[in-house]
Amino acid sequence: MRSLVSRRQFLKSTVFAAGTAVTGTGLANAATNANEEPLATLIDISRCIGCEECVYACKDANAPKFPKPEKPFPKMVPARVPVEDWSDQREVTDRLTPYNWLYIQYATGIKDGKEMTLTIPRRCMHCQNPPCVKLCPWGAAKQEPNGLSRIDSGICLGGSKCKNVCPWDIPQRQTGVGLYLDILPAFAGNGVMYKCDRCYQKLEKGEQPACIEACPEEVQVIGRRSKIIELAKERAKEMDGYLYGLEENGGTHTIYVSPVPFDQLTYDTGKGKPHLNPAKDTMADGSNLALALVIAPVAGAAAALGKFYKNMKEED
């Protein structure tokens, strides 16, 4: 048994070393260096056996960050404000919760005329331009230069806007925890939102995220986004497969490779169970309107100058 573990560890470290060689530099640099290209993860669905090693590794690695709510919860005003309490269901692993930031989604599809079951690790996609971060009204969510996005549980008020603007409804709320308890708990806020933070504490030390480290099948590879895209395209070519995450929501730092087209997969979706549908770039309108903000004062100035010129001519 001992020799098996060391063989597995050896294989993992070899794969990681190869991945690092492919990507050019180590993860520690990428964790903090704004000049480095962001990291991305390739998730090869064809390799996943659904063993949930990644799920439990995620839980172990992030347990210190999980919410410790105070009960009873403050009375909410108005009464329609939903209490979301997962503290008594910490063991749930078949969906995303504040205590489960990664789960295995079961999907079925047809490949070469045969039905096949696929198991898909699902978590935050870590968008290139994450609406959860960019539209958070308090600045509680942040994006690191290495591309990961995370929510600061010390600042988040649990308004759930991040979930509302996320194309996949990823962040999950726990009531009865966080800053709102110290402000106006009855009237504003409702806890803290939680989601995958790519094990930023491990990345800072140059280590891999727990889910990647624990996977016995090397389903995931992490590295620079451009290199990961190259690798994803190679894998897709090899298996005559399909990619998800390249263009979705303007591009993400998570690229799935599947042997079955994503729009032909059948899977359970709903609360805490994200879809795999096409996702339009939610921040595109804002980016386009930013141009209007540059043009507008120029147009105003031109109108004033036009009026001045006209009046000057009339005076002459």
Binding site: L293, P297, A299, G300, A301, A303, A304, L305, F308
Partner: peptide, 11 residues
Amino acid sequence: LLALGAYVGID
């Protein structure tokens, strides 16, 4: 607002 501000200020 920027357009109006630029117009009113310059005017």
